[in-house]
Amino acid sequence: MIQLKWRRWNIILHRDIGYLTVALVIIYGVSGLAVNHIADWNPNYIQKKEIVTIEPIVSTEKDTIVAQAVEHLHLGQKPDNVFRPDPETVQLFYPGITYSVDLPTGNVLVESNPRRMVLYEMNQLHVNSPKGLWTFIADIFAVSLIFMGISGLFILKGKNGLMGRGKWFVLFGTAIPLVYWIWFQYLQ
C-alpha cells in the first residue's frame, strides 16, 4: 500500500513537473543545438556586410570628413559616435549599423548585426546572461531535470520497467558519455 502511494506520487510529480518545464526544455534544447555549432555560425546575430562606393573624401579635418561622409551616404542625421582607426578611415556608428569609410577610395563597408529573433532570447537565457533572478530559475530547472530523469526510471514496473528492459537502456545511455570520454581523453 505504501509502495503504491509512493509510485503514484512519483507519477504525479513527474507528470506535473514535466508540464511545468516543457517550455524550458525546448528553450535549452534548441539553444543547445545552436550554441554547439558556434564555430560555424553566430547563433545570436546575422552578420551582414555590404560595400558601397561614394565620392572620395580629401579633407583632413574630422568634422568636415564626418559631414561629407554623412552627406554622401544620405544618412540625414549625425552618427551616435565617430572613430578614426587610422588617417585613411572614418567609422560612423548609428544604432545597429556601422559605416567604415575608406577616405581615399570612397569605398564604404556597411556592417549590421540584426539579432536572430527568438533564438537570441533563447541563447541569452541558456547562457544565463541576465544573471540575478534567472540564476535562481535556471537552478530550479536543473534540479527539476535531475528529478525528471530519476523519477522517470520508476514510472513503470514489470518487463518494461527499470528492472526489465529499462536497465539495458540506462546502461547504454550511461556508457555513451563514459566511452566517449575515455576515447577522447586517452585513445584518440
Binding site: Y45, K62, P79, R84, T98, R115
Partner: peptide, 29 residues
C-alpha cells in the same frame, strides 16, 4: 574602446563566459 585621441583604441578583455558583450553595442559609449 576608442581613445580620446584619434587613431588609438584599447581592448577591454573579459573572462570568457563571465561577461558576454552583445554585438549590437558597437557604436555605443
Amino acid at each position: 574602446i576608442g581613445s580620446d585621441k584619434e587613431f588609438e583604441s584599447i581592448r577591454f578583455k573579459v573572462e570568457d563566459g563571465v561577461i558576454v558583450f552583445p554585438l549590437d553595442i558597437k557604436g555605443m559609449t
